[in-house]
């Protein structure tokens, strides 16, 4: 018997389930998964999902800017980088390379991020109002490391893609995609650690800064 079979047999025996392999129970498990029940959540409610998202983002240590439309985004990003004295060259999701970055004075490179990149610009799949969280799906034109390796992560959020909670984010993913991508990353503010003396320090291995530009 393989290790797998031994373990599964021990599990089954421990649980006191009849027979050697699950039959009806496996079907029941599948049925439960298919039913997708949602659990209770905190009953806090908000009128304006965008305002909630922005407020919670700032609480997480991100900075938030809001512009009228997607056309304003490159200039808003440039303004942010200038205001912080940050470099104006950035690695960007290939999905976003069609936007007028050069016109805003930014030098963007659409590729996977490298260790030396200082600014990473990404979009999001959607964003979660409850916690101020960005949801990023990895993919050909949306590589994962752009939101991780650079010291500054600029995320562009279409306000029509702000959903109430994580459950709605999953539902949106299932509705629009064939199964999950390699990596789903929920990002909630700049990386941090409290491993020395329980003192919170912003900027551990990932970005020191997360700047969210909401548009629309």
């Amino acid at each position: 018997m393989s290790a797998r079979d031994n373990i599964l047999a021990r599990v089954r025996k421990g649980l006191g389930l009849p027979g050697e392999v699950p039959g009806a129970e496996r079907e029941a498990a599948r049925a439960y998964i298919a039913a997708q029940p949602r659990g209770p959540r905190p009953t806090y409610a908000w009128n304006d999902g965008v305002a909630r998202f922005c407020e919670r983002s700032e609480k997480l240590g991100s900075t938030v800017d809001r512009v009228a439309g997607i056309a304003d985004v490159p200039r808003a990003v440039a303004r942010y980088l200038h205001s912080k004295g940050l470099p104006t060259s950035a690695v960007i999701w290939p999905a976003l390379q069609g936007m007028p970055w050069a016109a805003a004075g930014l030098d963007v490179q659409a590729r996977a991020a490298q260790g030396s990149d200082l600014v990473g610009i990404t979009g999001v799949f959607c964003a979660v109002a409850e916690t101020g969280t960005l949801m990023l799906l990895s993919g050909e034109d949306t590589p994962a490391a752009a939101s991780l390796l650079p010291e500054t992560h600029v995320a562009l959020v279409d306000v029509t893609r702000i959903v109430p909670g994580m459950e709605e984010a999953w539902a949106l993913m299932k509705a629009e995609r064939q199964g999950p991508p390699r990596a789903v990353n929920f990002v909630s503010g700049p990386s941090r650690t409290a491993d020395i003396e329980q003192t919170i320090v912003i900027g551990a291995h990932g970005p020191y800064r997360v700047h969210v530009v909401c548009f629309g």
Binding site: T131, G139, E140, P143, A183, V184, A194
Partner: peptide, 24 residues
């Protein structure tokens, strides 16, 4: 755990790099 509403990162990983992926 840490008194956070959510941690900075929640990552769900499913399989290796897909065709066309630039990292992973």
């Amino acid at each position: 755990a840490t008194g956070q509403s959510i941690t900075n990162y929640v990552s769900m990983l499913t399989g290796p790099r897909r065709d066309g992926d630039r990292d992973g």
